[in-house]
Structures are given as C-alpha cells and as structure tokens.
Amino acid sequence: MDVLLDALIDSLKMLPFLFAAYLMIEYIERRQGERIEAALAGGGHWGFVPGALLGCVPQCGFSAMAANFYGSRVVTLGTLMAVFLATSDEAVPLLLAVPEQWPRLAALLGIKVVLALAAGFCLDIALRRFLPEGVRGGYTGHAGEVDCHEQHEAQQGILRAALAHTLNIFLWVFGFSLAIGFVMEWVGAEAFTGFLAAMGPLQPVFAALIGLTPNCAASILLTQLYLSGSITFSSAVAGLASGAGVGLVVLFKANPSVKQNLFITGLLWAIGAAAGLLLQLLGL
C-alpha cells in the first residue's frame, strides 16, 4: 500500500506541469508543423543543423517525419541521425514536471544538440565520401510526396488533445513508478541500485540498448530510473540519445534496404553508448 500511494502521489505531482508542456507541444505541432517539415527537407547537406534543433521538440513525430523523408531520399543520413539523436520523446515533459531537475534538463538538451550536430557534420560533410552511396540519402524525392502529419480525431481541439496525451503519459509514469517501487521493495532499494551501479562503465551501454525500443515507454522508463537515482545522468543521456521514439519503426517501413536500416540502428546505439561513456569519464 505504501508503494502504491508513493507512486500515485509522485505521479499526481507531475500532472499540472505535464499538461502545460503538452499544451505547448500541441500548439507547435498544429501551428508550425508545415514550416518545420519545410525547414527539415530544405536543408540539403546542412539539413542536420535544423534537424538537431527541431529534434529537441518533445514529440516523436519529428523522428517519424525524418525517417519518412530519408526513405524517400529527401534528407541525408546526417540529417536523419541528427533528428534521431536530438529526439527525447517524453523525457522533456517529465523533467519539466520536476522543477529541481530543470538545470539537468537544460544540460541534457544542450548535450544532445551538440551530439546531433557533431554526428550530422561527420556523416554529411567530413566522412560523406567514405560512406556507401546508397546510405548517404538526400538524392531524389520531394517533400510534398511524403505525408508526415499525425492524424488527430476530427474536431479535436488543442485542450482535449493535450489532456488526452497528459493522461496517457500519466498512466505510463504511474505504471513504471509502481513497478520500480515494487522491485525496490522486493529486492531492496540498495540491491536494485547496486545491481545497476555494478555495471560500472557498461551502464550507459545497457541504457543505450533500452533507448532503441521503438516506443515512448523507453524514454519514460529511462527518465523514471534517472529520477529515482537508479541510473546516472550519463546513462540517461546514452539511452535518450539512442532513443528515437517510433522513428526506427517508420524507418524500417519507409526504407526498403534492411542492411541500411540495421546499419543506422547500430550507429545510433554506438553513438549513444559512446556519448554516455564519455560523460561518465568526465564525471557527469
């Protein structure tokens, strides 16, 4: 009962902040969606710059958009990777819901933007000629041929959509908080955190694997583990960097080459894990 009440109270504290965050997200998606698509598709070899910035908007729809564009050869590999690495899915609203974590949220977004820009520059500028021609992307296709907009229910207003999204994520947060609480109660908090801590340098590698799960549940789980003190900030960055939301699912659907898709997935995991290991070495 104590675990249940603690999970419920902690989750309820987030509700006002979550609702405010999703109101903003819905507004951006509906009012600026077409401009964002145009900026992403029109960037050329420097598309990774708007990709890194737009990917920070806490909404996995942009990673799906980038995957669609890459499958149609509208954007380059660097732009796709920049969006994937910058995408934080539900982590941003969850951290916004905890005011004392705002400095860490700013650090997270800053690190992910730098990482996305660096990866995009390497793939599209510095190392482009070393990549197989088929994987580079950005050759043919037109943005107008790709439908990336999420479909909302007819006549559904921003308030209703934000409320529905807030309640959905609230249930995820409550579920994970409850699960983590029961695990800690069953095996003991020290044993649970000790198991994750015992991974040492492998913890970011493990977190990056979790991040590859093509669902918003991965970013929620990683954020909850970080907030509970079970994983370090560097591991959270590793998992959230490799996490592209539903982007990987859309990539495998939109891009016919399985080899290219597996290469991109492996590269995404490797960059996320390497970033986490580097931050760990720096003591962050």
Results as ranks from 00 to 15, higher is better:
residue 147 D to R: 13
residue 149 H to Q: 14
residue 150 E to R: 09
residue 150 E to S: 10
residue 152 H to L: 12
residue 152 H to I: 00
residue 154 A to I: 02
residue 155 Q to I: 01
residue 157 G to W: 05
residue 159 L to M: 15
residue 160 R to C: 10
residue 160 R to P: 00
residue 162 A to Q: 02
residue 162 A to H: 02
residue 163 L to W: 12
residue 164 A to V: 11
residue 167 L to A: 11
residue 167 L to F: 07
residue 169 I to L: 15
residue 169 I to Y: 13
residue 171 L to T: 07
residue 172 W to R: 07
residue 173 V to M: 04
residue 175 G to W: 01
residue 175 G to C: 13
residue 176 F to D: 03
residue 178 L to D: 04
residue 179 A to D: 00
residue 179 A to M: 10
residue 180 I to S: 00
residue 181 G to T: 04
residue 182 F to E: 12
residue 183 V to K: 00
residue 183 V to W: 03
residue 184 M to A: 15
residue 184 M to L: 07
residue 186 W to G: 15
residue 187 V to I: 12
residue 188 G to A: 05
residue 189 A to V: 06
residue 191 A to E: 08
residue 191 A to Q: 06
residue 192 F to L: 14
residue 192 F to E: 09
residue 192 F to R: 00
residue 192 F to K: 00
residue 194 G to K: 01
residue 195 F to M: 13
residue 196 L to R: 00
residue 197 A to L: 03
residue 198 A to K: 05
residue 198 A to S: 15
residue 198 A to R: 11
residue 201 P to C: 10
residue 201 P to Q: 12
residue 201 P to G: 15
residue 201 P to V: 13
residue 203 Q to F: 01
residue 205 V to N: 04
residue 207 A to W: 04
residue 208 A to H: 05
residue 209 L to Q: 02
residue 210 I to Y: 04
residue 210 I to L: 14
residue 211 G to Q: 05
residue 212 L to K: 09
residue 213 T to K: 00
residue 215 N to V: 01
residue 215 N to F: 05
residue 217 A to K: 06
residue 219 S to W: 02
residue 220 I to Q: 02
residue 221 L to T: 08
residue 222 L to R: 06
residue 223 T to M: 03
residue 224 Q to N: 12
residue 225 L to G: 01
residue 226 Y to P: 07
residue 227 L to K: 05
residue 227 L to V: 02
residue 227 L to N: 01
residue 228 S to M: 10
residue 228 S to K: 15
residue 228 S to D: 14
residue 229 G to W: 04
residue 229 G to N: 06
residue 230 S to Q: 12
residue 230 S to W: 04
residue 230 S to L: 14
residue 230 S to C: 11
residue 232 T to S: 15
residue 232 T to N: 03
residue 233 F to R: 06
residue 233 F to C: 09
residue 235 S to L: 06
residue 235 S to R: 03
residue 236 A to I: 01
residue 236 A to L: 15
residue 236 A to Q: 13
residue 237 V to N: 09
residue 238 A to D: 07
residue 239 G to M: 11
residue 239 G to K: 11
residue 239 G to V: 08
residue 240 L to Q: 07
residue 241 A to P: 11
residue 242 S to K: 08
residue 242 S to C: 08
residue 242 S to H: 08
residue 243 G to R: 00
residue 243 G to A: 15
residue 244 A to D: 12
residue 246 V to D: 10
residue 247 G to V: 09
residue 250 V to T: 15
residue 250 V to S: 07
residue 253 K to N: 08
residue 253 K to L: 12
residue 253 K to Q: 12
residue 253 K to M: 10
residue 254 A to L: 03
residue 255 N to F: 02
residue 256 P to I: 03
residue 256 P to T: 09
residue 257 S to L: 08
residue 258 V to E: 01
residue 260 Q to V: 07
residue 260 Q to R: 12
residue 260 Q to M: 06
residue 261 N to Q: 06
residue 263 F to A: 15
residue 263 F to W: 11
residue 263 F to V: 14
residue 267 L to K: 04
residue 267 L to W: 10
